[in-house]
């Protein structure tokens, strides 16, 4: 379990980091917490000759709570998301979901930026970010652009980010006061990726539903959200289930996954409705 050799870089500002990515092209990769990348490197499923560590870049850290939006630096760890009281007040679904990711050790180092940039359909944050209508700021040689989470994922491991761009920040609109929420995840054991997971928001601002690990990208369904907002729970469930496309793997055959998807989705909807004010 030893990865191939590489040269290590620890830039302290964004310009140097992007310079390294430009200089080395697809031979270079950034590393955040490394808890998706290093296992892939050990299996030799990811190969690179320059590893650009983002830990020294201070501007990639920090959580800013605004009145209407929240900004989270890409290098914020899952543990930092969980322990931030203001964030848990403003967007409680974020803590609820982060607590269901992996195990304590992984959450101390795994970052939100790495989780959303990775493009692995098993990651929990991308679906949640689509549910919350987050957007990602990416910075590259040509400057800064903002990409909606709902537009970011093309297929497994392929995203709208180009190789020379670094994801710097995630912006979330604050859910309206009184919004009910739930993140429900079925997994084989602690530390496992989802067999199926569902993120649901329901409140004065409308409703939103996204699902995880049930296709090669996260699945956000506009119709499901609209049905739920109109009070049609069964319509919401059937719209969301019509949008998934699970594949058979060690977590089970397709029929089983569809069944589990329905179970977690109904639970998430029930819990979100029961938590909504009024």
């Amino acid at each position: 379990m030893i990865p191939a050799g590489f040269e290590y870089h620890r830039p302290t500002d964004m310009a140097s980091a992007i310079g390294l990515l430009q200089a080395h092209g697809d031979e270079a990769r950034v590393v955040a917490g490394g808890h998706s990348l290093i296992p892939m490197m050990k299996l030799r499923m990811a190969s690179l000759s320059h590893l650009v560590d983002l830990q020294g870049i201070a501007e990639l850290r920090g959580i800013e709570l605004g009145a209407d939006v929240i900004r989270i630096g890409a290098m914020t760890t899952q543990n930092e998301l969980i322990t931030h009281e203001g964030l848990a007040q403003a967007v409680p679904i974020l803590r609820e979901a982060a607590l269901q990711i992996a195990d304590p050790q992984v959450r101390y180092v795994g970052t939100i930026g790495g989780n959303v940039a990775n493009g692995d359909p098993g990651n929990d944050m991308p679906g949640l970010m689509q549910c919350l209508d987050a957007s990602y700021e990416v910075v590259g040689p040509d400057g800064t652009r903002t990409i909606a989470a709902r537009e970011f994922y093309d297929s497994a491991y392929f995203t709208a980010r180009s190789d020379e761009e670094i994801l710097t920040r995630i912006t979330l609109p604050c859910p309206a006061a009184g919004t009910g929420y739930a993140y429900e995840k079925q997994k084989r054991k602690i530390g496992d990726y989802a067999t199926a997971a569902a993120a649901v928001l329901f409140g004065p601002g409308g409703a939103s539903i996204a699902m995880t690990n049930l296709a090669d990208t996260p699945v956000w369904s506009a119709e499901a959200g609209a049905a739920l907002a109109a009070g049609d729970t069964e319509g919401a469930v059937s719209a969301a289930l019509a949008a998934i496309d699970p594949q058979e793997d060690m977590r089970g055959p397709i029929e089983f996954k569809k069944h589990v998807a329905g179970v977690v989705l109904r639970r998430a909807i029930d819990r979100a409705l029961s938590r909504a004010a009024g």
Binding site: M1, Y8, R10, V31, G34, H35, I38, P39, K42, L51, D53, Q55, N79, D103, P104, Q105, V106, Y108, V109, G191
Partner: peptide, 26 residues
Amino acid sequence: ETSHCGACTVDMDGKSVKSCTVFVAQ
């Protein structure tokens, strides 16, 4: 050695970390 068992856990800068999933360079 695959980030699952925790036998390699060390404390690094005040965090519990699986030292099989950290490069010495980091």
